[in-house]
Design a protein around this nucleic acid. Structure first.
Length: 492
RNA sequence: GGGCCGUUAGCUCAGCUGGUAGAGCAGCUGACUCUUAAUCAGCGGGUCGCAGGUUCGAAUCCUGCACGGCUCACCA
């Protein structure tokens, strides 16, 4: 941390001077009766004259964010959780205490006050302060009023300052909260219950990703931070819950970028006796519901695009999507041709990649960038989806969809594989891939197979990346703008 | 991990082909009872990211490192 500088020293002196005057600079509870924006809303129609006649008193608590001193009177702005409002301090009203405003009150200090509402000659609703108390003396100067805090690194490292001085940042996180609440409300209304399954797992499963490893001392075992809750949620289907969801953190030990944070929020939900077709319609209901609740519209701006969330959305089999971009269909059933095509088109592949994986790489290059409007890509190759149910008319494909919006995967869902023998074989294949050096291949999870052996009802499950959904709905270009404390290297 | 860019006062930024650091805001002192970028007068404030190197002389040129941004690779 930086050393005490002159500006902080000055403020410590003021703090001591307050104490010498018998004033505690760090106060306790203050039950304000009002908030800034409520006052603006409530009295917006009240004229200067009627405010004078009615003598409306109020009390507020918040942070001083601007201060203009005139000698025997001063204007300030105070900011609380709702917004800001102007204050007017007068010597003839405050007497001795006015000198504290003049000498000892700083921008950044938190005060509580009582006063009377009036309008200035420019008609700004203002509180004439009758009395005030120091609640918190601020020792560090805030960024300047004009340009504010711009430095991106400081904004992320000291998010608290970012939130004080950049109202739109605060707003984005309020929106995030609303989005998550809307999702929960929707799922609850459809009969889902929220559950919590282990974040620390002995076998990290349910996704293809590199996990974080940790160690439990008392048990003397290695544990992994979960990369997905999937396998535990499906155990709950075995247990008899028919509709469950979990909305919480996943952890993946991979690169950090504008689209990736090591810990990120994921919604996963599972519904018994349904399939992926049901979930497509369900998703066409869920996401518009959330957009309507939080933005009030289904036409949203993201970057340069206007995205129309009005359902229904296009449903496009993966192989058809490839064909539509000029990928020849003969590579779909011919591994060597697929490899050759990829190499010819400078798509990076490696020896370990299965046929399905090669097709997926081609898809990411040739198709994904064009999926701006909501599109379900359906029926993926089975190698890509070791936990999904095969299509009855084509066992090389699975009943799966990925929802793309603005060239990003927003949701991933499939009819769940509930055949324990097929599941065991697919795990086995993954174990072999792992032995071949595929760090992200699934592990064998014997207990999960055992659960399936008891019988899991036919079911469909879906995952939605919450951070990416929030990015979409808040028009944020970086995941760091929707995560309060994004992961950064430590200072120094 | 690769490439490109950035890091100068509390904040936002200037600082040319190398000559020894500036502004605005914030702060301090003073004046001012309707300002809102208040105004006016005066004052203080710097490890120029860190470490080396070149040079008579480095914020400036070179090398390495740190942190950050964008981007590519990997992924959600």
């Amino acid at each position: 941390m930086d050393e005490i500088n002159e500006l902080i020293e000055q403020r410590i002196k003021k703090l001591e001077e307050l104490r010498q005057n018998g004033i505690e600079p760090f106060g306790g509870a203050f039950y304000a009766e009002n908030h800034a924006n409520d006052l603006h809303n409530e009295y917006s129609s009240m004229t200067k004259e009627s405010l004078e006649e009615n003598k409306i008193t109020c009390s507020l608590a918040g942070r001083i964010i601007a201060l203009r001193d005139f000698g025997k009177a001063a204007f300030a702005h105070i900011q609380d959780t709702t917004g800001k409002i102007q204050l007017y301090f007068r010597k003839d009203l405050l007497g001795e205490k006015y000198s504290f405003v003049k000498k000892l009150l700083d921008i950044g200090d938190i005060i509580g006050l009582t006063g009377r509402l009036f309008r200035t000659k420019t008609n700004e609703l203002t509180v004439e302060v009758n009395d005030f108390v120091f609640l918190t003396k601020s020792l560090r100067p805030l960024p300047e009023k004009w340009h504010g805090l711009k430095d991106i690194e400081t904004r992320y490292r000291q998010r608290y300052v970012d939130l004080i001085v950049n109202p739109e940042v605060k707003q984005a996180f309020i929106k995030r909260s609303m989005i998550i609440k809307a999702i929960r409300d929707f799922l609850e209304s459809k009969g889902f219950i929220e559950v919590e399954t282990p974040m620390m797992q002995p076998i990290p499963g349910g996704a293809t990703a590199k996990p974080f490893k940790t160690h439990h001392n008392a048990l003397n075992i290695d544990l992994y931070l979960r990369i997905a809750p999937e396998l535990y949620l499906k155990r709950l289907l075995v247990g008899g819950y028919e509709r469950v969801y979990e909305l919480n953190r996943n952890f993946r030990n991979e690169g950090i970028s504008t689209k990736h944070n090591p810990e990120f929020s994921m919604l996963e939900f599972y519904i018994a006796y349904r399939d992926y077709n049901f979930l497509m319609s369900f998703t066409e209901e869920l996401i518009p519901y959330v957009a309507e609740k939080t933005l009030g519209t289904l036409k949203i701006q993201y970057g340069d695009d206007i995205i129309d969330l009005t359902p229904p959305w296009q449903r496009l089999p993966m192989l058809e999507a490839l064909e539509s971009k000029g990928v020849p269909s003969e590579i779909f059933n011919d591994y060597e041709k697929a490899r050759a095509w990829a190499i010819e088109h400078r798509i990076e592949i490696n020896k370990n990649m299965s046929h399905g994986k090669v097709l997926d790489e081609i898809f990411k290059e040739m198709v994904e960038p064009f999926l701006i409007q909501p599109t379900f890509i359906i029926d993926h190759p089975v190698e890509l989806s070791p936990l999904a149910k095969r299509k009855s008319d084509n066992p090389s494909l699975v009943e799966r969809f990925e929802l793309f919006i603005s060239a990003r995967e927003i949701a991933n869902a499939f009819s769940e594989l509930n055949d324990p023998m097929d599941q065991r074989q697919r795990f086995q294949k993954q174990v072999e891939a792992k032995a071949q050096g595929d760090e992200e291949a699934h592990w064998m999870d014997e207990d999960f197979v055992r659960a399936l052996e008891y019988g899991m009802p036919p079911a469909a499950g879906e995952g939605i990346g919450i951070d990416r959904l929030v990015m979409l709905l808040t028009n944020s270009q970086s995941i760091r703008d929707v995560i309060l404390f994004p992961q950064l290297k430590p200072e120094q």
